[in-house]
Amino acid sequence: MSGAPGERGLRARDLALSAGGRTLLAGLDLLLAPGERLALVGPSGAGKTTLLRTLATLVDPAAGSLSLDGQPPQRVGYPEWRRRVVLVPQVPAFHDTTVAVALARPFSFRVASAPFPEARARELLARTGLEASAVLSQSARTLSVGQQQRVALVRALLVEPECLLLDEPTSGLDAATTSQVEALLSDLPGTACLIVTHDAVQASRLAPRTLDLAPLVRAVSQ
């Protein structure tokens, strides 16, 4: 099922999520308009990460449908969808390569339409508090979790997605670096962000609107 004609943004309709044979939540409707920021909160196990993975089409919903600018994933094409709706996991995974190679990897995929923008990568690394000259030649796996989270964020931004799905993007960062990352996230014109956070204050700082999954979880468990 596709979205309404002319609709812009990422849309989920009547979504139900399950994991390990258990229904996590049902009846979720969501529209993330271009450039919009939405914080996603809810108790542990509510399905926040599963929702992000579902919106990235890495797993199928138990029920319901997705669309991007009114087009379902099968019409957009799954690799193309994931280029436009990029998930940044809480604990990123990297191949056993340098940070430079890790950042360039998405540009080696068939779906890539432009070469690796190295100058932009250096700029974004600096804006997340990482010194490009030091970090680019380091092994991505030897970085701290906080550094890996920032490299993963930079890698996602380099592909210039329309929607960013961020799972606890600052959970491994100190207060000063968190401020830098938040400033970067607040300065992404045209990029919609769905941000999972446990921090209600951060949610209010980053997004004017908050989606709480708790009522949807309660509806399923009753």
Binding site: P89, F109, V111, R155
Partner: peptide, 9 residues
């Protein structure tokens, strides 16, 4: 999955 999430086939 991290490759798939960035558009890998």
């Amino acid at each position: 999955e991290s490759d798939l999430a960035l558009g890998a086939t």
